[in-house]
Amino acid sequence: MPSRLPRPPIDTAPIKDVARSLRFAVEQGGRSLRKGLPLDALPEPAARLADVALHTARRISDSAGRGASSLAHVLLDGDDTPPPLSHPEEAAAEARFAAAAHDGLRAALLRLGAESCLVSEAAAVAAWRRVTRAAEGSDSETAAALYLALIDPPAVREVVWGESATPPAEPAKVATFAVLLAMLADPAEYQALLPAAADLALALVPDLVQAADRTALKTLFEDFRNHV
């Protein structure tokens, strides 16, 4: 008889979200501070104080981010590919999906011209749970349901656009569609397919805006999953 009970799986997504939110807030704060109050122009000791405060805040957020990230890597056992949407019951599928969705949404938004963004991995976990609990039908149907679940409540929390960027209409929808399209196309090639998937999604903005229900989204996924 084992001396200890097996540990329940740890949900790392909220921990990572906290660390990332902290880092995002520090970066945003620093950016705003630099824009509104040029440190170079501040007289001493105000400039030094502001500089030290910014560095300290960044160090804390970096340290939190590193801790959360290494914990996640241990738990995910090095597998950073998303699970096939046709087999949501695969081992660690939920965590793999959430990590891949987080990284993919960030990558897609940056590809669309975002300077920085905040994406919730916990929201991706919640979307996965909601959808796979009631999952029936094809992987395209699962993708359509995941799309709606990632949009509302939104997994993309904040997006910052550079001054010269031209944000597309509905950037969160575009990025979400791109992520799921790349997962459907080939989970093993997910990372490499993301840029093409993002550009395809961008070309499909009018369709995405119109596709309000699951059936229309499923058709859109089916029409383009083999063309990434």
Binding site: A196, D199, L200, L202, A203, L204, F224, H227
Partner: peptide
């Protein structure tokens, strides 16, 4: 222009 090329590709498909 990668974005334009993607739109051309989608129209063509």
């Amino acid at each position: 222009d990668d974005r334009k090329l993607a739109r051309i590709f989608v129209d063509w498909l």
